[in-house]
Design a protein around this nucleic acid. Structure first.
Lengths: 212, 212
DNA sequence: CGTGCGATGTATCGGTCCGATACATCGCGG
DNA sequence: CCGCGATGTATCGGACCGATACATCGCACG
């Protein structure tokens, strides 16, 4: 999962570890708190060993203008390689069971802008199925085994059940939108058109290319 | 976390591993799928080494009546010890930072029936604080950094924000209930009074003792 | 003027937990 | 009578976390 997230982020811009962690926290803030360095750095080394990312000297341009101001530190900037982009595409397209658990789904979803519509649909439906199963399990417990459990445990299940029902509804909406070829809900008028240093062509369904 | 859950469950009845896993899944179904054996068995061994649980021969009574029917298998039944109960009480009362993350809070909440009211209140408020912080972080991203993110990532944050707001509201309700001395929401009329093999006295605030 | 503190930054270590896998028994239906 | 799903115990490698260590930078406060 971390591998996928790093590859995805580095596709937007080269970064060093600290930056990567912050961007990751911003992008996945809804899913998980913040990645630990104890995971991040070993993974970076692994990715580099596999040839999917590479270290690069920082200060890309304007290096001569500011020789020793901010650059005199051991910052290690990572850049994704061509093989890395292939690897990302492969990871994004293939869906294992871990694609549908909370974290896995979150990471995949966060990179839906780089995912083709068919895959998006497949993942959304897989996630929906999984949540529906969880929901049924909770309904079973709340129905059949209710007397065996205390009021607090019951309340916990009730709350979990509600969250499941809510997420299923959310997924239904997203699936419907996806099928109709539109971008995700809430068209967000006016505020579109931020910085967009996308090198790879935006996949279909992505409707955010600003009018220049 | 697993340690706490096992100690808590074994306080209700002696069990073997498989059963423990099932009960755990039923009790924590809203939080996590099912504990892996790769965690369960090593933890059981650790708890046993610490003297908090002990192996016991199964078939407590009626052992002579059915000599070789169901007993001829390597089932290992674990029982909590007096030290184990102390350990459980200690773990339940002391709240570290991990008490307020999703899994930790869920486990603590699932054993609220064995937790005194002051601790319940403290945990609920700690959890609320943590969720409020996450909520603020999401609001920040959705406000300040919205142009930097694509529509899908934005939608993910939006959904996460809604979940946070919902959970805060839920916690507020529980806290209010707790302060007023009542049991959790939805009094559940009639269906109370199931099997209740509680050896330890029910903590204050527990209002489920049926009127005989 | 200095000094200490919070943000930036890289890195490791031990520990927890998961997923895959192996293996054995039991009861039931075909 | 045979296979298959449920029951049951167990291990191994790997992913990820939390604590910790250490170094630099800029700035606020004395």
């Amino acid at each position: 999962m971390l591998e996928l997230a790093i590859l995805g982020l580095l596709q937007e811009a080269p970064m060093h570890g600290y930056e990567l962690r912050k961007e990751l926290a911003a992008k996945l803030g809804a899913i998980r708190a913040a990645i630990s360095y104890g995971s991040l750095y070993p993974t970076l080394r692994r990715l580099q060993a596999a040839g999917w990312i590479s270290e690069a000297a920082e200060t890309p341009a304007t290096a001569e203008e500011v020789p020793a101001l901010t650059s005199r530190r051991g910052r290690v900037v990572y850049t994704i390689t061509a093989e890395g982009k292939e690897r990302f595409a492969q990871l994004i397209a293939q869906a294992g069971p871990e694609t549908y658990d909370d974290t896995g789904f979150g990471v995949h979803f966060a990179f839906f802008a780089r995912t083709d519509q068919a895959t998006r649909l497949r993942i959304l439906e897989g996630r929906r199925r999984k949540i529906e199963e969880r929901r049924e399990g909770l309904r079973d417990v709340l129905g059949r085994a209710a007397e065996r459990l205390d009021a607090y445990t019951l309340e916990l299940q009730r709350h979990g059940l509600e969250a499941c029902e809510r997420e299923v509804r959310w997924l239904e909406e997203l699936i419907a939108n996806e099928r109709s070829g539109r971008a995700p809900t809430v068209p967000q008028p006016g505020t579109a058109g931020g910085r967009r240093d996308n090198d790879s062509p935006p996949p279909p369904g992505e409707s955010r290319k600003e009018r220049p």
